[in-house]
């Protein structure tokens, strides 16, 4: 268990709703849900997640901290906003789902091996290194995330597209050597670090 997690548990005792309200983007709207379920039915990824948004909101109110923060559901959100436009209580469900994902991630409670979450991590790490995405490396890292054999298989299956992009100069093979970054890389890193510091402070993650 991480320290941040421990601290959060202690601070909010048994009141997970309050924890969510304090730490999750738009978390204060969770309590306004009236359990109609229109979000659950509206989500195009519906068949693929474990808990519907409305159910997550009920679990938050019931204090099911571990289940909620360990749920894969919020990582499945594709930001289509169907739930949000239909919600009769106008809950910003999409934002809450992203907020919850972010919070679970920060606490280190997000489910391991959840593919969309892994890809997001990969993307962020790739991006934050040089200030721009190294598409070749991102692709390769993604393909080989499950080991060499699986990676080769996946890469082979996609080779037609890869070659096409290569011919169209959409992928530069030279990027395997690191590729190019933004002009002021140091400045970029400083910006990111500062942003993180501000957000951590806001959300109570100050080390």
């Amino acid at each position: 268990m991480t320290t941040a997690n421990q601290a959060a548990i202690e601070r909010y005792r048994n009141n997970f709703l309050k924890e969510v309200e304090a730490n999750v983007e738009e978390g204060h709207m969770v309590k306004m849900c009236m359990q109609c379920g229109v979000c659950a039915g509206s989500c195009p990824l519906g068949p693929h997640w474990t808990h519907s948004p409305q159910k997550i909101f009920m679990m938050i109110r019931a204090g099911k901290r571990d289940e909620v923060l360990g749920s894969d559901s919020m990582f499945m959100c594709t930001s289509c906003y169907n739930c949000m436009v239909r919600c009769p209580r106008q809950l910003p469900i999409t934002h809450i789902m992203h907020g919850l994902a972010n919070y679970a991630h920060r606490l280190g409670l997000a489910p391991k091996g959840q593919p969309t979450r892994d890809f997001a991590t990969l993307f962020w790490n790739n991006l934050s290194k040089k200030g721009r995405v190294n598409e070749l490396m991102l692709t390769l890292q993604h393909y080989f995330r499950n080991g060499l054999v699986a990676g080769i298989k996946e890469a082979m299956a996609m080779q037609g597209i890869g070659l096409g992009m290569f011919k169209a100069k959409r992928i530069n093979p030279m990027e395997i050597f690191g590729g190019h970054g933004v002009k002021d890389l140091k400045g970029f890193h400083a910006i990111i670090a500062k942003a993180k510091e501000i957000e951590d402070r806001k959300k109570g993650f100050t080390a």
Binding site: L17, K31, M32, M34, Q35, M58, R61, A62, R89
Partner: peptide
């Protein structure tokens, strides 16, 4: 009135 109670943090459990 229901909404107002929710706003105030009353938990409703079916």
């Amino acid at each position: 009135f229901y909404r107002s109670a929710q706003q105030k943090g009353v938990i409703f459990t079916k």
